[in-house]
């Protein structure tokens, strides 16, 4: 038997970047580093838990290691939600590097400790862009009165700050909703838009927006972590560093190749002109304010968390 047996669980389809670009490369890298000292029980694709259930799975011992989707655990790790806010990064690599630095601050690390999990590596998507099915939405004024699909949480705040209305629609309904015009736009990263199949319905996408992002922190249960020999712990972390670079580069180059692919499909890829981008980012600033205000109202050090995150973003 192996020295360390890890049960790895995630909730995304096998082809999804979380799985194919993050979890599996990490598993392979660790195997490469320590060989047979580690073995896996691997339950991908929501076989044992979906995105919402991953935190419970790792806390109850169903899993030893899961990629915790930060947007779905605002009840357990509200301050880490800072990593999903708009306007704080320009690529997957910068987003990941920022979060990797910020996660070491007591505000963010404290939440991992409280929940009994150890963060190993993170994957932050490139910033969300605006995918629309009825032409480009090139200026702030044109957001007014639009209905944009939202995944809930702080994405609602971002959409509202732009003067549009967020409509929460289940992932399995997005395709039909866009096809029938229930909503005409959605916020998504290039690397994950294919997961909904809506790229074939959209005729325009922004490329230089920063409408927030989706972050996952691959974490191991503390109790399990404590049983792992130090040299394997080191290898786990080393594989984590490798994965952060690997998945960041992968998503950034994906964004480029997908951009080409979508262009060829006839999609209009456009940049917000500088003055409009300023206006849009200015409007999105208010999301930071209300995020801080709401968490501070509950006695949480949200302002410090945001401050330190911003600093990390500047250095990334």
């Amino acid at each position: 038997a192996s020295a360390v047996e890890l049960t790895v669980v995630h909730g995304s389809p096998n082809k999804h970047v979380i799985s194919a670009g993050g979890v599996e490369p990490w598993m392979n890298k660790l195997k490469e580093l320590v060989g047979d000292a580690v073995s896996y029980n691997y339950f991908p694709a929501g076989q044992l838990a979906n995105l919402k259930g991953l935190m419970n799975a790792v806390q109850t011992g169903v899993a030893d290691a899961v990629p915790v989707p930060i947007g779905y655990v605002s009840d357990k790790m509200p301050l880490n939600g800072v990593s999903t806010l708009p306007g704080l990064g320009s690529s997957a690599r910068t987003n990941i590097d920022t979060y990797a630095a910020a996660i070491q601050t007591p505000e963010l690390m404290g939440e991992f400790d409280e929940n009994g999990i150890v963060p190993i590596w993170n994957m932050a998507y490139p910033p969300y862009q605006l995918f629309s099915s009825k032409g480009a939405i090139p200026s702030l004024a044109e957001f007014e009165g639009r209905v944009i699909r939202s995944a809930g949480g702080s994405m609602n705040l971002a959409i509202e700050s732009l003067g549009a209305a967020p409509a929460e629609i289940s992932a399995s309904d997005i395709y039909v909703a866009m096809e029938r015009g229930t909503v005409n736009a959605t916020l998504s990263a290039f690397s994950s838009v294919k997961g909904y199949g809506v790229q074939e319905l959209c005729d325009a996408a922004s490329t230089n927006g920063s409408f927030g992002t989706f972050t996952n922190v691959f974490s191991i249960r503390q109790e399990k972590w404590d049983t792992i020999p130090a040299e394997i712990q080191d290898a786990i972390m080393e594989a984590g560093k490798f994965t952060e670079q690997h998945v960041g580069d992968l998503m950034d180059s994906d964004t480029e190749t997908l951009g080409k692919e979508f262009s060829e499909l006839g999609m209009d890829l456009y940049e917000f002109p500088p003055e409009e981008l300023d206006k849009i980012n200015g409007a999105l600033e208010s999301v930071h304010d209300s995020w801080v205000e709401r968490l501070a109202g509950r006695g949480l050090p949200a302002e410090a968390a945001l401050e330190k995150y911003r600093k990390a973003a500047k250095q990334a």
Partner: peptide, 14 residues
């Protein structure tokens, strides 16, 4: 509300 007035009830889903 969403269809006629572009004013969905944002609390509804949750």
């Amino acid at each position: 509300m969403r269809h006629l007035f572009s004013a969905p009830l944002t609390f509804q889903y949750t």
